[in-house]
Write a protein that binds this DNA or RNA. Structure first.
Lengths: 133, 133
DNA sequence: TTATCTGCAAACATTTTGCAGCGAG
DNA sequence: CTCGCTGCAAAATGTTTGCAGATAA
């Protein structure tokens, strides 16, 4: 009896390219952004294939998927190494990376209080920076 | 000087129908569901108009908007008038409104430490709710 | 060899927009 | 009478699918 419910994906040039890019990727990226990055890096991969590989990798739990507020699918490697947020200037676009246990703890506690598990969150802070004020 | 930044919307039959339906609506509903409900209730309202009215009402804070896991926009009358965040189930889309001074204070403090003013922020918490775990 | 993967084009679903006519104020 | 609102159709957007040919195993 050869129980082979998961036929192991082929190691194609395209899949390798997507996989490698995602491993070096910290932030969430949409399929289209990933496709663009691949083309700019010289790899010739069709958008369809990017979608299919991302979805396949998400199905195996290799990638994490969310919806952006704009409704696009966004992918990120599941093994989140360092999670952080952004402080963005509305005027000049200057961005500061923010980390801190306060929000992480708060978000997790709130979620658990409501019976939610596998908690993640997205936070962005906007303001006017000193140079633009 | 008549400072009139918000020209007050007209009382049209269509807008009244959408508004009334939403007031008697507890759960989140997509634009298309709302449109269907209106047609079934006998009101003749175009889908475009439903979209435009829902968006207008959401802009004024009258309605609350989220994305379903399938990527559709969902609307509901806003229960809390104040600023709040969402705890969203990745699986079924169930949503809980979250408020709390912790994040508000933290975001403001962090921003000010970096010299930012006029601070605002956006936060969404994702997880798997008890029913879907 | 051969079943899977790829990539184009075309289909799809949701939401937005152009524009002529309607109607609230 | 005016100008915003409506609604149709058509465009835009993001994602999926059909299918013929390429290719990993």
């Amino acid at each position: 009896m050869t129980t082979d419910s998961t036929p192991a994906p082929r190691r194609t040039r395209q899949r390798a390219a997507v996989s490698e890019l995602m491993q070096n990727q910290e932030e969430f990226r949409t399929a289209q952004q990933i496709h663009d990055q691949l083309r700019q890096a010289g790899a010739s991969v069709g958008l369809t294939t990017v979608y299919r590989n991302l979805q396949a990798m998400a199905d195996t739990g290799e990638l994490d998927v969310i919806r952006t507020p704009e409704g696009e699918l966004s992918f990120r490697q599941c093994t989140t190494v360092q999670h952080h947020h952004h402080l963005v200037c509305r005027s000049c676009g200057r961005t500061v990376e923010i980390t801190g246990p306060t929000v992480e703890k708060w978000a997790n506690r709130i979620a658990e209080e409501h019976g939610f598990s596998e908690v993640s969150h997205e936070l962005e802070i906007f303001g006017t920076c000193a140079a633009c004020a």
